[in-house]
Design a protein around this nucleic acid. Structure first.
Lengths: 270, 270
DNA sequence: ATGGAAAAAAATGAATGCAAAATATGCTCA
DNA sequence: TGAGCATATTTTGCATTCATTTTTTTCCAT
């Protein structure tokens, strides 16, 4: 049970100057002021069914539980998540807006299939965003953050030497995330995350190992990235990052070049 | 009324090799095969109520029909658009995902208010995207497209000389759009459009005119952009574009620097 | 059997219904 | 009069219902 405090507008005016962001029910104040629950715990926002369903469904799709281009079974998912169709359908519309699935008129939704061209576009945009992130990061990044990225870099180098693809990619991804985070731009970060999600469905590192040359090249590029970052050379870093991603794109897209529209699903690792 | 053709899977196999993308109801084939409507017109997809409502509502918000930070009146909008709450609510969720509005738990939605920091972030990301667009454009842009941008450039220059702010901005925007379009990257374009929409709510060009210096500077930057584009110098163009947007950001954000969280609504032009 | 059509079943899209939460209004008592 | 409380009213979130549309099944005539 929940107890509320009530005030008149006049009282409110005064309270607003005293009380900071808490909770209440006063309408004029868009933001709540004060609320106490009987058990003493500060009331948890408790994600709405819609929000909950949305992230669960997003994960479900991103993690590849539905085959590429496969239909999204509305009814089944309702049961799986234990919600009615309303919140689920809302989530579907959002996911469609995010570009993860596509809506077929009168025929539900299906997981969006990424063709070669789609991947190229996605890689390019991600490259652009990372490139931007690097440039921005140079403006405000702290020595500690650089040190952390350096640490990851050497960790990754270790995996490279040991030909440990799996961990290499793991750390590699973490480095890129760090750079994006260092840009201190939430907007950028959320767009980046969205694109990363779309791509994550496609495992693109398979038989990367065979192209030893490309791998060595990637390592060298990472050296250059780290170097530019250390010197906080914004434009240079931006350029290096973009080229790095461009090469990554070429390697990735080339690898699954077989299928014209869709993708041959022979990939293995992440 | 609509007539369908029906086939067995066996027949379908054969048809698939003959008939190209048309319409039908065969399930195995995700894509329709053949459909004829009685009036002869090829069946129009006819945007769903959801899609229709979504774009109408998006426009409604972007065009500023609801004050900054104002609540989105669900009930009223249902009447305005003549739809039930279901499609409208779906649209709300999508718009929230797009970052145009925000959802308050148990309290509906309100138009997202852009603070100084939000604007900075948006400008930076748009700058990054344009910068990327420029770089990509250099790879495939045709002489005709460059010529068109040149034309716009000189048209804009004319408005600059005549101190015609309104048209200047109009054409200016068109130039940037052209560059984005020339990147031939739909993903990029749609993200760019989304960000542009968020910003469009804020008229940021007011009293730009007073800063004659900045205006002249902007013109010079545009010269440099055009120059790099002509030479198809990707990296250079990328850099120039970013710096241009960065300056634009500074000018724009500075101008409405008064309000700390929200924005003083003294802007005038677009 | 097999092509084709009608009939049945399932799904989708959207409106309505309903309980919980928020907001507004009225009332009481110093 | 107005602070504080209790009661209406509205709004919100979600489930349910309903009319279509799509998909599957059944059936009939070759």
């Amino acid at each position: 049970m929940v107890f509320y405090m009530q005030f008149r507008p006049s009282t409110l005016m005064i309270l607003q100057t005293i009380v900071t962001p808490m909770k209440s029910t006063i309408p004029e104040l868009g933001i709540p002021i004060a609320e106490i629950t009987d058990d003493g715990t500060p009331d948890r926002p408790e994600l709405s069914l819609h929000g909950e369903t949305l992230s669960r469904l997003r994960d479900y799709v991103v993690e590849g539980n539905i085959p590429d281009g496969g239909r999204v079974p509305e009814r089944q998912l309702c049961e799986l998540f234990g919600v009615s169709r309303t919140p689920l359908r809302e989530a579907l519309k959002v996911l469609a807006a995010e570009g993860l699935i596509e809506l077929l008129p009168n025929r539900g939704a299906r997981v969006r299939e990424l063709g070669k061209r789609d991947l190229e576009e996605l890689f390019d945009v991600m490259g652009g965003l990372e490139s931007l992130a690097g440039r921005l990061a140079c403006e405000t990044i702290t020595d500690e953050e650089i040190a952390e990225i350096e640490r990851l870099h050497y960790e990754m180098y270790g995996y490279y030497l040991h030909r440990d693809m799996h961990n290499y990619f793991q750390v590699n991804q973490r480095i890129h995330e760090r750079i994006v985070a260092a840009s201190r731009n939430e907007t950028l970060r959320s767009i980046y995350a969205n694109l990363a999600g779309r791509i994550r469905r496609v495992r693109y590192s398979a038989n990367f190992a065979r192209k030893r040359q490309r791998w060595a090249e990637a390592m060298r590029e990472h050296e250059a990235i780290l170097d530019a970052l250390r010197r906080r050379a914004g434009s240079e870093l931006s350029d290096t990052l973009f080229r790095h991603l461009r090469n990554k794109r070429t390697a990735a897209v080339e690898h699954l070049g077989s299928a014209p529209g869709g993708l041959a699903g022979e990939a293995v690792d992440d």
